[in-house]
Simulated assay, not measured.
Amino acid sequence: MKVVNSLKSMKKRDKNCRVVRRKGRVYVINKTNPRFKARQG
């Protein structure tokens, strides 16, 4: 999991990436390819 300031660039890495809010944090998750995970902040 990468920690980044801007999730927009992480969302562009793969077409299946989704932006999800969990427990006050913003995550990028990808079910088909779990390598592309990121968290903001």
Rank of each mutant, 00 (worst) to 15 (best):
1 M>H: 00
2 K>C: 07
2 K>W: 09
2 K>E: 11
3 V>K: 13
3 V>S: 04
4 V>I: 02
4 V>A: 01
5 N>A: 15
5 N>F: 14
5 N>H: 15
6 S>W: 00
8 K>R: 09
9 S>H: 10
9 S>E: 09
9 S>Q: 10
10 M>P: 04
10 M>S: 15
10 M>R: 08
10 M>C: 12
10 M>Y: 09
11 K>W: 04
13 R>Y: 11
13 R>V: 12
14 D>N: 07
14 D>F: 12
14 D>M: 03
14 D>R: 07
14 D>A: 10
15 K>L: 11
16 N>I: 00
17 C>I: 11
18 R>T: 11
19 V>Q: 15
19 V>W: 08
21 R>N: 03
21 R>S: 03
21 R>V: 01
23 K>T: 01
24 G>I: 02
24 G>Y: 00
25 R>P: 02
25 R>D: 03
25 R>F: 01
26 V>I: 10
26 V>C: 03
27 Y>H: 04
28 V>L: 11
30 N>Q: 11
31 K>I: 07
32 T>D: 12
32 T>H: 08
33 N>H: 14
33 N>L: 05
33 N>S: 07
34 P>K: 15
34 P>H: 15
36 F>C: 06
36 F>G: 00
36 F>V: 06
36 F>K: 08
37 K>M: 11
37 K>W: 11
38 A>G: 11
39 R>S: 01
39 R>T: 01
40 Q>F: 05
41 G>I: 01
